[in-house]
Amino acid sequence: MKRSHEPIFWSLFGAGGVLSALVAPVLIFITGIIAPIGVWMPHEALDYPRVLGFAQHWFGKLLILAVISLFLFHAVHRIYHGLHDLGVHAGTGAMIAAYGSALAGTLITAYLLIAVGFG
């Protein structure tokens, strides 16, 4: 029997599900709502030197990579399987596009985390 890739994708889906259930709402609330309108979060909190310092620290890099990569793997897994619910019977091409884009997002994030340098 051909081995299935599903356990790998399900693990990434599950890890992304846990991480996003824990921190996605508060991250969306901070970066997308209260910081831009300047309520409950001072504008300086996300100033360039501060965020750069975070992205240059090894632990900050780890958190950024985990958030972006696992959110993507979680989302593409649900979108790929959700296509069936919408009457689209997706084949291998859609599968490669889904998980491939999450992998691409992960690799670009890793590259950018190296490009911003180390503090």
């Binding site: 997308g32 959110f71 979680h74």
Partner: peptide, 26 residues
């Protein structure tokens, strides 16, 4: 069920927005 599954579209876009932020930071 569809709202829950649909949340993943928003999550994916949000991840791309963060990725764009990292790109701009660099």
């Amino acid at each position: 069920y569809m709202i829950r599954e649909g949340s993943s579209v928003f999550l994916a876009i949000y991840a791309v927005i963060l990725l764009a932020g990292l790109f701009r930071l660099a």
